[in-house]
């Protein structure tokens, strides 16, 4: 499978190709059979189709159950949540959301939301800027040391990041940058998340070289080739990277846990955790409501961009 195809290959197209395969490889090859065995085969196929759908539906139920349970629980009174297998609330209430939106300890929910949003959007900007530029150097410019740097970058992909968090924390702490967004964003603007660079290098490698060579003959420098030729062509890779940069930043927990210590700087996951710690077990309703609110943007993103996301995973091995 061509690597460049990942965001461009719409599911329908793939499905269409595979459907054609289906008819070609179906059990009923040319030549025909006697009517009796054909109907038996049809029955067998129908039984198999039913079994297939039952099984797939069962898996779907198991997969969706926790998420749907969370969503439905957020509309139930707290006392009805734990231990209830029923999905549909018997008493429907919006109190949980009112409570969750009320915020924690004098800081509004929207403050947390905006912090998460600022971090996520800035991450997207940082990743797109730094990864495209770095990837261009790796993919399109030849200079001494490139091969070595590229291998090192691949190496950082597999490196457990825990080995750097302690010194990083000490450095940012000494710089007085704890309680700012800088430690959380520095890595994005400095292309420290190698998979984005890698993804873009892979993409760029497969763009036809003739384009930049032609431009070069016309006297264009690297800056112009990058801006006028590469960037527009890299749209699919940029979109995929942006989606993942957004979602990963939105879900990030350890980073904000280490660096954001003041309630008005909390991102949503940290606020959510604080909320869980602060409320008695009996207040599951508000916890669920806040959990739903914290996941909502990710789920919306997923619904809108699911094709990009899943195809990105299928072809690039991106992890969710």
């Amino acid at each position: 499978m061509s690597q460049t195809s990942y965001p461009n290959l719409p599911a329908q197209a793939a499905g269409g190709v595979l459907l054609m395969e289906d008819t070609a490889t179906g059990p009923e090859g040319p030549g025909g059979r006697v009517a009796g065995s054909r109907s038996a085969a049809q029955r067998r196929r129908r039984v198999r189709a039913v079994a297939f759908h039952v099984l797939i539906l069962a898996i779907t139920v198991v997969i969706l159950y926790p998420a749907v349970w969370m969503l439905m629980s957020s509309f139930k009174p707290s006392s009805d949540i734990v231990g209830s297998i029923n999905l549909i609330p018997t008493t429907f209430t919006l109190d949980n959301f009112a409570k969750a939106l009320g915020g924690i300890g004098g800081v509004s929910f929207w403050t947390f939301f905006m912090n998460s949003m600022i971090l996520a959007v800035a991450s997207v900007v940082g990743v797109v800027l730094s990864a495209t530029v770095s990837a261009y150097a790796f993919a399109r410019i030849s200079f001494p040391g490139r091969g070595l740097f590229f291998s090192l970058m691949i190496g950082t992909l597999l490196l457990p990041f825990h080995v750097v968090i302690i010194p990083q924390y000490i450095i940012f702490n000494n710089l007085g940058l704890v309680n700012s967004f800088v430690p959380l964003l520095a890595g994005k603007f400095l292309a420290a998340e190698a998979f984005f660079v890698f993804l873009m290098v892979q993409f760029m490698r497969n763009l036809p070289r003739e384009l930049d060579e032609a431009a070069r003959i016309d006297g264009a420098g690297h800056v112009r080739i990058f801006r006028s030729i590469m960037l527009p062509l890299m749209r699919p890779a940029i979109i995929t990277s942006s989606i993942f940069a957004f979602i990963w930043s939105w879900n990030d927990f350890l980073g904000p846990l280490l660096y954001l210590k003041k309630p008005d700087l909390y991102s949503l996951p940290i606020a959510l955790r604080l909320y869980v710690d602060q409320t008695s077990v009996s207040d599951y309703g508000a916890q669920m409501a806040m959990a739903v609110l914290a996941l909502l943007p990710v789920l919306l993103f997923f619904i809108v961009f699911q094709r990009y996301i899943v195809d990105g995973v299928a072809t690039q091995g991106l992890k969710g």
Partner: peptide, 20 residues
């Protein structure tokens, strides 16, 4: 702006803050 935690978490949170 207020925040509170249970006893154990409270000291974990304060320790981290003290370092920063």
């Amino acid at each position: 702006q207020t925040q509170f935690q249970a006893w154990d978490d409270y000291w974990t949170a304060r320790n981290t803050e003290a370092a920063g």
